[in-house]
Structures are given as C-alpha cells and as structure tokens.
Design a protein around this nucleic acid. Structure first.
Lengths: 191, 191
DNA sequence: GCTTACAGAATGAATGTTCATTCCGCTGTA
DNA sequence: TACAGCGGAATGAACATTCATTCTGTAAGC
C-alpha cells in the first residue's frame, strides 16, 4: 500500500468506526484493525487521536462544501437558492450517512463546542453561502427579521432532525417528501 | 444526611457533572465528590453507572412533563396550544439549563438511541401531548399533512437548536424573541 | 441515665479492565 | 548492508466497581 493510500485507509476506517460507535466506542486498535494497519502506524500519520478526529472533521466539511457548491447559483432568487441549498445538504447526508453520523458526534462533543465557539466569535472566516443567503434575504425583506442564529436554527434544526430520523430508519424520505419538508422550512423563515 | 436526601445529592451531582462534562468526562469518583459521599456509596443507591444515567433521565423527563402540563388546556384551538407547548418547553429549558444539557447528552448517546427506538416502535406507551396535538391538527386540516416524525422535526428541531444557542451564550433570547421564534415554527407547520 | 452490642450504611483503598500511546525488533527495498 | 516504514506487544494512566473496614444510630441490659 502506498503512503497516501494508507493514510486514506486510516481516515476511512476512523470515519466508519466513529460514526457507528462514537468517539469512545472506537478505540485506536479498532480503527487500526479496520484500516488493515498496525496500531502504531496511525501515529505515523496523526500525532494523536484528537488530531485525527479534528482533521477528519475538516476533511468532511470540505467535501460537503464542495458537493453543495456544485449547482449553486448565487444569482437566482432567494427562495430558489434556499430550496436548492436545503435539498443539496439533505441529499448529501442521505447519500453519505457515515459523514452525517460523524458530524453529529463531533458537534455534540467538546471538540464541536470549541469549534462552534470559535466560528461564532468570528475566529474562523467562513465563506458561508448560508450566512450570505440569509443576510440577503433579510435585507430584501423576503425573510423574517431574525438574528442569524435563529434563521439557522429554523433551517438546520428540522433538516438535521429529518436526516437523523431517515438515517436511523425511523422514517423513509423520498424526493417529494424532502422537497415538501424544505418548503415547510421556507414557510417558517419567509416573511 | 437522611437516606433519601443522600440519594438526592447523588442525583443532583450526577446531573451537574454529566451536563457539564459529558458522560465520559464525569467519572463516578467526581460525582461522588460533588455529592459529598464516598465513591462506594453511589452503589448503594444505583446498581451501576448505566442505571444511574437512565434513571436520572427518567426523572428529568417526568419533571419536564409535569412543568409543561401545568397551564395546558386541551380544549383550546390548535394554534394556541402549539404556541403554549412551544414556549413552555423552551421556557423550561432556559430556566433549567443543566436539564437541557443532560437531555442532549443523553439523546446523542447509545442510551438515547435505544430509548428512541423503543419509543418509536411503540414499546413505550407515551401519553404525548405533542403527538395528540399534531394528529388533531392534521385531522382538522390546520396542519400540513406530514408524517408525525417530520412535524416533530419542524417543531423541535428549531426549538432545541435555539435553546442550545441560548444556553451556550451564542444568542440571548427574551420573551418576545421566543414567541416570534415559536410563531415561525408554526408558520412552518401550519397549512 | 448510662453502657454495650449490633445491624445497617458509608467509606475509600485495592482490583481488574480498557484504552491511548510508545518502543523496539522486523521486513522489504535500494 | 543500511534504512525507512511497520506492526503489535508493552506500558502506564484512567476508570468503574468491589469489599474489608469503619462509623452511626438504636435498643437492650443494668
């Protein structure tokens, strides 16, 4: 196995094990096994478990951002962009349940809390389409005049809940139901 | 300290430590310390950590249910009941941030998954005002015709997100903003 | 009223287990 | 032969849980 290939295997295995069993249910030995490498080998690529975890998070964020960006047209009207972005993320999560589960684990952990705090306090410049969309919507009086955080909550709250329910097999989403759900979110957000 | 008093101290300490540091950041020794009892003492009241955790969850659920029930009038129109239930839970969470943080930890853990699975598959008869409310709303054609799980997502998704943001000091909610937020949820759910 | 005996509670040091991380000998390659 | 890269056993720290011991309150015996 070549060097970058091995690194990839480790990342893939970590994603799978952690998504399925949580940070604490996924010992390094288990990840190493799944990746088909020795336990010590992981430490040739990642200084420690924490760094593996945050690095993996960053890679996922990147992937999702890239996936959603394809097909996004910032010139379209607000409502249309909102529906696109909503269905795109939800679609990504449904197509990549492991990614979704991993993100959830991450967000609900001390790692995620720190990360979020940084982001809100602006330590991370985020090239965020969503922020831009909402700010535009409020300015054009198409969207309710709420603080950004509440608009996010009204959108991503249902989105993530629905993705979770689908991935855990509590409901079955088809394209029509997805669209209707995002439209309902829009009803909550629009003026 | 009397016997039930001591049990209470243990439960209170467990709530606080777990809410603040997560299940894995709250060793039994730490909980015992906070409760002012010996480590072994906890085991006189709870067979093991798992049982302490699930028992505490049940107690919290009970408290919240009781708190919200006060002032709920099943005779009122759907919209009014929806707004009441929304503000009531959100208000409870804001007044009891530890309870909220604990519930979140619980839901995002294997404990919570199992619990949820049981609930959905109907193994727990739940005397759920929310379910009843939505079912009534759909029947009266006041509420969009969605599966129950989606209506829950549209309501609790934003609610929990907003509660989290407030408790972590990412936003500040006042009564007016709370009401407007719940109204926005209603916009998402109503026909 | 005072002392002694005893049962049930409480305690916390000791135990065994589960990891993350380290270390050193091995192997395939140049 | 020399060496980079690996593997996986060894190490030590962090815990949950146990259990031999200590404490406390109650009640019988005087």
């Amino acid at each position: 196995m070549s060097k970058p290939e091995k690194r990839d295997e480790i990342v893939r295995a970590a994603l799978e094990m952690i998504a399925e069993h949580g940070f604490h249910g996924a010992p390094m030995a288990m990840i190493a096994d799944k990746a088909g490498v020795g336990a010590g080998t992981i430490y040739r690529y990642f200084e420690n478990k924490d760094l593996l975890i945050t690095e993996l998070y960053r890679e996922l964020e990147e992937r999702i951002y890239a996936a959603v960006l394809v097909g996004y047209d910032p010139e379209k009207p607000i409502r249309e962009r909102f529906l696109y972005l909503g269905t795109a993320v939800l679609g990504y999560f449904i197509a990549n349940p492991l990614d979704f589960r991993y993100l959830e684990q991450f967000h609900n952990s001390p790692y995620g809390m720190a990360y979020r705090r940084d982001r809100i306090s602006g330590k991370r410049e985020d090239r965020d389409m969503y922020r831009e969309l909402f700010e535009g919507g409020v300015a054009q009086q198409v969207v309710k005049d709420f603080p950004l955080a509440i608009l996010f909550a009204l959108t991503f709250g249902p989105l993530l809940a629905v993705a979770r329910d689908h991935i855990l097999n509590f409901i079955v989403l088809d394209d029509e139901l997805i669209l209707r759900t995002i439209e309902a979110c829009w009803d909550g957000v629009k003026r």
